[in-house]
Design a protein around this nucleic acid. Structure first.
Length: 213
DNA sequence: AGCCAGGACTGAG
DNA sequence: CTCAGTCATGGC
C-alpha cells in the first residue's frame, strides 16, 4: 500500500522499536503515567524501584500509602502528583472490566484526573491492544512541518486512523518510530535540521492526497 | 550550565 | 482554542 511508504521508510531507517517493553499490562499502565513529560530513562528507574519493592502490581499500589509510592517513583519527577494519579489508575485497573467497547473504556480513562488523551490512548493501544493511534507533540510537529494541519488532538488522531489500515501492530510501531525520529531531529526547533528523512517524508508522505487541499 | 523529556491541569485572554 | 505557569528529577 502506498500509504505506508513513510512508515516503511522509518522502519527501514530505525528498525523495529518493539514498544512497549513490559512484563505485564499494568506495567504499561504505570509507565504511561510515569512517562508524562519525563525522560524514559528516569521512568525505568522508577519502575525498577517499584519492581524491587514488589509493588509493580495494581492491587498493591491501590492499597499502598501515598508516601511510600512517592519515594519509589521519585526519579520520574512530579512524584507527588504522579503518586496520586498512579493510585487512581491502579484502582481503576483492579476493578474495571476490560472486555468492553473501546470508546467506553476511553471515556472512563479520561474521567480519571491526570489521564489526558495521550495517556489514555497509550494505555488503550499498548496495554489493552486496541486500535487507537497515539498522538504526541512529535506527531503534531512532524505533521505541521509537512503541511498537515488539524485542530486539536482529535483532529490529528482522526487523520491517522482514517488513512491507515486499522491494525494494532502498525499503530504501535508507527507511533514509536515517530517518537524515535522526533527525539533525534524534531525537538523544540523551528525545523527538522539535519533530518535525513526530511526530503523523503515531504515527497512521499503516506497521506499525501490529504495534504493537497 | 542549562535545556528538556514518550503531559495534564488550571486559569487567562 | 491557544497560551503560560505549575509540577520535579536526572541525563547529556
Amino acid at each position: 500500500m502506498d500509504q505506508l511508504r513513510a512508515y516503511k521508510a522509518l522502519l527501514r531507517k530505525f528498525g523495529k522499536q518493539g514498544w512497549w517493553p513490559a512484563k505485564s499490562r499494568f506495567e504499561v499502565v504505570a509507565g504511561a503515567i510515569l512517562t508524562q513529560n519525563t525522560n524514559w530513562r528516569n521512568v525505568e528507574k522508577a519502575i525498577g524501584n517499584l519492581r524491587k519493592a514488589r509493588m509493580l502490581n495494581a492491587g498493591k499500589i491501590a492499597r499502598a500509602g501515598k508516601r511510600k509510592i512517592e519515594e519509589l517513583i521519585r526519579p520520574s519527577g512530579f512524584y507527588r502528583q504522579k503518586a496520586g494519579r498512579l493510585k487512581d489508575v491502579a484502582r481503576w485497573f483492579v476493578s474495571a472490566d476490560k472486555n468492553r467497547d473501546t470508546g467506553e473504556l476511553r471515556e472512563e480513562l479520561l474521567s480519571i484526573k491526570g489521564v489526558g488523551m495521550e495517556t489514555a490512548d497509550s494505555i488503550l493501544l499498548y496495554a489493552l491492544g486496541r486500535p487507537v493511534f497515539v498522538i504526541d507533540a512529535y506527531t503534531k510537529r512532524m505533521c505541521g512541518r509537512h503541511g498537515i494541519r488539524r485542530t486539536g488532538y482529535e483532529g490529528y488522531r482522526a487523520f491517522f486512523e482514517k488513512n491507515l489500515p486499522k491494525e494494532v501492530e502498525l499503530y504501535k510501531e508507527f507511533h514509536a518510530l515517530i517518537v524515535e525520529l522526533g527525539k533525534r531531529y524534531c525537538r523544540k526547533k523551528p525545523v527538522c535540521e539535519g533530518c535525513p528523512l526530511r526530503a523523503l517524508l515531504f515527497s512521499s508522505y503516506p497521506l499525501k492526497h490529504v495534504i493537497q487541499h
